[in-house]
Amino acid sequence: MTAPFLSLAQIRNRLILTARWVLRDHQPGPDGHCPICRTANCPVAAAARDVLHAAKEVQLWSTATQPTEPDPNDPQQDG
């Protein structure tokens, strides 16, 4: 179920799961051909690999930042 209330992280995770599922189904056999598409270079598997690559790049480009210096007013820190 895809709904407008899903976060971007949830949508990304669902894309990754779907791409992995597609790659499992379109994994080439011993002869090098896709068992579903029956082609040597399966375009569906290539698209799934592109989705995984793009999702990995998005994770690397995360906008979350870490504080540059510790907050002296933070009671959770040792100091």
Rank of each mutant, 00 (worst) to 15 (best):
residue 6 L to P: 05
residue 1 M to L: 10
residue 32 G to T: 01
residue 12 R to G: 05
residue 69 E to D: 09
residue 45 A to G: 05
residue 50 D to R: 11
residue 71 D to P: 00
residue 71 D to V: 01
residue 8 L to R: 14
residue 30 P to K: 15
residue 44 V to N: 06
residue 30 P to Y: 14
residue 73 N to D: 14
residue 38 R to A: 11
residue 3 A to S: 15
residue 39 T to E: 12
residue 75 P to M: 03
residue 60 L to M: 13
residue 34 C to W: 06
residue 43 P to L: 06
residue 49 R to T: 08
residue 42 C to I: 04
residue 20 R to M: 09
residue 15 L to G: 06
residue 26 H to K: 00
residue 6 L to R: 11
residue 45 A to P: 02
residue 10 Q to G: 14
residue 15 L to T: 04
residue 2 T to Y: 01
residue 28 P to G: 04
residue 66 Q to E: 08
residue 62 S to V: 01
residue 4 P to K: 14
residue 38 R to W: 09
residue 52 L to M: 02
residue 61 W to M: 13
residue 46 A to W: 00
residue 16 I to N: 02
residue 41 N to Q: 15
residue 74 D to C: 14
residue 32 G to W: 10
residue 34 C to K: 03
residue 36 I to P: 04
residue 2 T to F: 01
residue 28 P to Q: 05
residue 45 A to V: 06
residue 17 L to R: 12
residue 1 M to E: 15
residue 20 R to C: 07
residue 58 V to F: 05
residue 13 N to M: 09
residue 23 L to D: 00
residue 79 G to D: 13
residue 55 A to I: 08
residue 36 I to C: 04
residue 31 D to V: 04
residue 22 V to K: 02
residue 72 P to Q: 09
residue 63 T to E: 02
residue 61 W to Y: 11
residue 30 P to G: 13
residue 25 D to W: 13
residue 36 I to K: 10
residue 47 A to P: 01
residue 79 G to N: 09
residue 74 D to N: 15
residue 66 Q to R: 13
residue 72 P to L: 10
residue 14 R to L: 06
residue 59 Q to C: 11
residue 67 P to N: 09
residue 58 V to Q: 06
residue 23 L to M: 05
residue 28 P to L: 08
residue 43 P to R: 05
residue 13 N to D: 12
residue 67 P to K: 11
residue 48 A to L: 02
residue 15 L to Y: 07
residue 34 C to S: 02
residue 7 S to I: 00
residue 53 H to E: 12
residue 37 C to P: 01
residue 39 T to G: 05
residue 40 A to K: 15
residue 17 L to E: 14
